[in-house]
Each structure stands twice: as C-alpha cells, then as structure tokens.
C-alpha cells in the first residue's frame, strides 16, 4: 500500500454506480463521508460508525462492505455501488418493489444498507431459507419494522413463501410466519 501524506488531501477516483467520479480525501476520511459529503451520494446512511448497524453498507468491487470502516483512499480505483444505482432509470428492482408491498421499511434509515447487503447476498444465495436469511440480516439493525416485512419481502422475491402462506390479502402480502 502506498504511503500517503496524512496532512494532505489526495485525489480519489471511483466507479460509482457505473460512472467515474472524482473527489479529494485526506487519508483518514471514511468512505461513507467521502460518498455523502464529497460526492453528494446521500443514499448511503451512517448509523453507528463502528461497523455494527450496517446502515452504511455499500458494495466495493461487488462485495458488500461497511463504508464507515473503509477509508476513501482504499476505494481509489475501485468500483463502488450504492443504493442510488439499484434502480436505473427510476424503475425499481423486484426486491425494492417487494420492500414496498410488504412494508419492509418505515423510517428507511437502515434500508439502503440492507438492500445493498441483499443485492450481494442474493446473487450468491438465490434461495436462502428463512433461518439463513435472518442470520444474514443480523448484520443490520432496524428499529422500526421488527424485520418481519423485510423477511417477507425477500421470501416473496426469491419465489418462496415464508411459512404457511396460503392467505394473501388485497395488497398481495403473504401470511407471516407466526411463532
């Protein structure tokens, strides 16, 4: 790794959602701050800045990563994908659409991170069991939904139902798994 002058700002160039974006960052600047405040990509949220809550999750070279635990200079020359890039031309993906139908978000502050983790995870595990899915989601904190709608949305979009889903109401929601 090259040695950088700690006191100086350095040019950082990333491929953000398919486009080259350039900005400047001091070596200690977090990737989350660089995205949000240097490039104006506010879709990525910051919830704890110590790597637990998952709100800032982005994809770095296609792998889900915490932007708050990554330095901007580490991303120089790399591909970064954020929530803004999920729905090109404004058409929501099936997953985003399922989040809406299943009321998988309320305040929405954790949502971008969860979507980015899922976009990576579902490429690798296209049909997770509910247990596998919940295990993966445990890397994200949501204070609004109790995770129920998130689980329902993913089970729906992966062509599975979460449990004994024989009933479906007007909004197309499936019956949740009751404990």
């Amino acid at each position: 790794m090259p040695s950088l002058n700690a006191q100086a700002k350095h040019p950082v160039s990333i491929t953000l959602n398919g486009r080259t974006r350039m900005g400047h960052a001091s070596p200690r600047m977090l990737l989350s701050d660089f995205l949000r405040h240097e490039l104006g990509a506010h879709g990525t949220k910051v919830g704890c800045e110590h790597g637990v809550c998952g709100a800032c999750t982005i994809r770095l070279d296609e792998v889900a990563a915490r932007a708050c635990l990554t330095l901007a200079v580490q991303a120089d020359g790399h591909r970064v994908d954020t929530v803004e890039g999920l729905a090109p031309e404004g058409r929501m993906t099936a997953l985003q659409d399922a989040f809406n139908r299943h009321h998988a978000l309320q305040c929405g502050f954790c949502t971008a991170g969860i979507l980015m983790s899922l976009s990576d995870y579902l490429e690798r595990v296209p049909k997770p069991t509910e247990t596998e899915l919940r295990d993966m989601l445990s890397g994200h904190l949501c204070r609004c939904t109790g995770y129920a709608g998130i689980v329902r949305a993913v089970m729906d979009v992966t062509g599975q139902t979460s449990g004994n889903a024989d009933a479906e109401d007007a909004s197309g929601r499936k019956e949740p798994v009751h404990v």
């Binding site: 506010h42 929530v83 999920l86 809406n100 009321h103 978000l105």
Partner: peptide, 19 residues
C-alpha cells in the same frame, strides 16, 4: 392496506434526511 407512497424515494436513495 395501501402500500406507502413515501417508499419509492427511500428505496432508491433519493429521500432527504437532515444530514
């Protein structure tokens, strides 16, 4: 049970919070 109108902006990263 109408799904939320506010979701599209949040799900696409367009919603604006204070920061």
């Amino acid at each position: 049970p109408i799904p939320r109108l506010e979701d599209a902006a949040i799900l696409t990263g367009q919603a604006r919070y204070t920061d």
